[in-house]
Design a protein around this nucleic acid. Structure first.
Length: 586
RNA sequence: GCGCCCGUAGCUCAGUAGGAUAGAGCAUCGGUUUCCUAAACCGAAGGUCACAGGUUCGAAUCCUGUCGGGCGUACCA
């Protein structure tokens, strides 16, 4: 009973690797094995392009495919090994495929359940909003991508430190202090802190142009703040910081985003001096135009500034101090910065500084960059950066509220008797926004479009959630559940997996879960997983059209319920990594 | 000027390390509900993968150039 569960994908890759090893010995280890789904299902369940092996085997790809085929015998899992020109195509026994995938998922075996620890420590720097500026759409990307990566790394066996590197320090704070002195209003602050701070900051920006003395005051304020004294500037800073921190909890809670550390820039206030000294000791600094910098003459890029000519520090100094601290504290093997692509140069500079210091992790300090949010300019007829028509930044809450309202309307239309409408509307609406942000490649600029954001059809979060809700509904009507089906499989006489032979396409797609996570990890790209979730949902919707679950022959119903439970489970697991919920009904 | 990124269907995008006949969604057109949720499904139509060369058995993918768009280019983050 309960023989070992295999990951068919990994198993087959192992067979190919063995065969390559037999033919080529150690040389085989460096060759890629990229099994993928053939475009034409008739070709097989998985196909292997044999072009890369031809050279090593001193033959042509077709011959290479045949040579490999001779060394891979069909067995209880693999039913067919067929060279087709330069490709080597495989087919699984449908029954064995079904059993291994369904059980793998329900019993939470790797790669469908949490992966065993790999002992690697990863720090992920994400979200990092500026204090005293509202949480707007721009922060959404870093937050949502970072949160997904944090979950992805954790799921795949990494020790993860998700850090919110709050923008709570820096010369901009001098401006905010001045703005607060000039126009701050206690009542307005209590009522809507972020809105008020935003308003006075915007006002500062405007008035700075006409009143140059403001600029001086702001610089002075930051100098006094950075002096370390318990002065008025520090009191204002602390007050505004606390209230902002409080206000950020709202969006984070709605997005279900968590951090392991909330160490913002100010955390490094007393740690920068030591780092500067260490860099000086390493002999990589120079003084240029009155500023302390690290120069990169060979790379032809501007220097990294450590201390400005007025003696104060800059974000690069704090980022370096943070890197030193994180190396000490978390012993990271990899450090990811989920920050917009406009800061590319900055992170290139940081990496170069670390290289100069001879840090072995330098190449694993990576900028996980993402594109801008663009708005359509009606007059000019094109997409551009930054502002809406009204000239204000769009607040995140506004977007979430709109989405939730849109969902509520659809519920009233389609499912008015749904219990717990409010909670489900919140879950579906917020998920739609998150999913939408994770759908496309990070690097792409996001074209902000209300219609698209508030659409819940096609490749959207609700579409995937809906597939899950349909599966839940079937389980519910059968008086079963995911845990119950997991039990049922383990019990005597469990499931006749032969009866799932017509589910091969959906099973093959679910089987892509493991390789997909690997690719998402390699590229720090959540959208790769998002796209798989869409494909799994699509396969499920199609399957449900042609296959009834309830009311069939009892054995068939039970087998299909096992598939339904596995589908439900894999959707939930994948969506959870992305930060999207899986409602039981919608 | 220089550096980096992008250009795939009307629109928004996928396209795994160069591999089999370039795929989705939206929009358009046609069909599916006495049947487990039609936020769904099935079908039709839609392409000079910006352009021109090159590399090779093979290029949307790699190289060079051109055009178009974006971001960055020392004391903001």
């Amino acid at each position: 009973m309960n023989p070992q569960v295999l990951d068919p994908n990994a198993y087959l890759e192992g067979l190919v690797r063995n065969a390559l090893g037999e033919l080529l010995g150690e040389e085989a280890a460096v060759l890629p094995v990229s099994l993928d789904r053939p475009r034409q299902p008739e070709h097989g369940d998985l196909g292997l392009p044999c072009f890369p092996y031809a050279k090593a085997l001193k033959t042509n790809p077709a011959q290479a495919a045949s040579m490999l085929a001779e060394r891979i015998r069909p067995d209880t899992l693999v039913s067919e090994v067929r060279p087709t020109g330069p490709f080597l195509n495989f087919r699984f026994h449908p029954k064995a495929l079904a059993e291994n995938v369904v059980r793998g998922i329900l019993e939470e075996k790797e790669p469908y359940g949490p992966w065993a620890s790999n002992g690697l420590s990863v720090v992920i720097d994400f979200s990092s909003p500026n204090i005293a500026k509202p949480f707007h759409l721009g922060h959404l990307r870093s937050t949502v991508i970072g949160a997904a990566l944090r979950r992805l790394y954790r799921f795949t066996g990494h020790e993860v430190h998700g850090i919110n590197h709050l923008g709570d320090w820096g010369s901009q704070f001098g401006k905010i202090i001045v703005a607060w002195r000039e126009w701050g209003d206690e009542k307005a602050l209590q009522k809507d802190p972020m809105r008020h701070l935003f308003d006075i900051y915007v006002r500062y920006q405007r008035e700075e142009k006409e009143r140059p003395e403001l600029k001086e005051q702001a610089a002075e304020a930051f100098r006094r703040l950075e002096s370390g004294e318990e002065n008025e500037e520090r009191a204002i800073w602390k007050k505004l910081r606390d209230i902002s921190l409080q206000a950020f909890q709202g969006p984070y809670k709605r997005l279900r985003v968590e951090f392991d550390h909330m160490t913002g820039e100010s955390f490094y206030e007393d740690k920068m001096e030591a780092v500067i000294q260490e860099l000086e000791k390493a002999g990589i600094t120079t003084v240029s135009e009155g500023a302390l910098v690290v120069e990169f003459p060979e790379q032809k890029i501007p220097p990294c500034i450590l201390r400005k000519s007025d003696g104060t520090t800059i974000y690069a100094t704090r980022d370096l101090a943070a890197l030193f601290y994180r190396r000490e504290t978390y012993h990271f093997d990899k450090a990811l910065y989920v920050v917009g692509s406009e800061q590319k140069l900055h992170f290139r500079q940081l990496a170069l500084v670390l290289e100069k210091l001879g840090w072995p992790q330098a190449k694993n300090v990576q900028h996980v960059d993402f594109g801008l949010i663009l708005f359509f300019n009606q007059e000019k007829g094109r997409w551009e950066k930054g502002k809406t028509r009204s000239g204000n930044a769009i607040f995140l809450d506004e977007v979430l509220d709109e989405a939730v309202a849109g969902v509520k309307k659809i519920i009233e239309e389609k499912n008015p008797d749904l219990p717990d409408k409010e909670a489900i509307a919140e879950a579906v609406g917020v998920s739609a926004i998150i999913f939408n942000d994770l759908k496309n490649g990070r690097i792409k600029d996001v074209k902000f479009d209300w219609n698209e954001m508030l659409s819940f059809e096609g490749e959207t979060g609700p579409y995937v959630q809906y597939a899950g809700a349909r599966l839940s509904s079937i389980l519910r009507k059968a008086g079963s559940s995911v845990p119950a089906m997991t039990q049922s499989i383990a019990s005597e006489g469990g499931i006749d997996f032969e009866l799932l032979s017509d589910a091969t396409p959906v099973l093959l797609t679910m089987m892509e879960f493991g390789p997909t996570l690997k690719r998402a990890l390699e590229k720090n790209e959540p959208s790769i997983l998002t796209n798989l979730m869409i494909r799994i949902a699509s396969e499920i919707h199609s399957f449900l059209r042609d296959h009834r679950v309830l009311g069939e022959d009892p054995d068939l119903t039970r087998a299909r319920l096992a598939l339904v439970a596995a589908g439900r489970k894999i959707l939930e697991t994948g969506l959870e990594i992305l930060g999207v919920t899986s409602p039981e009904r919608m």
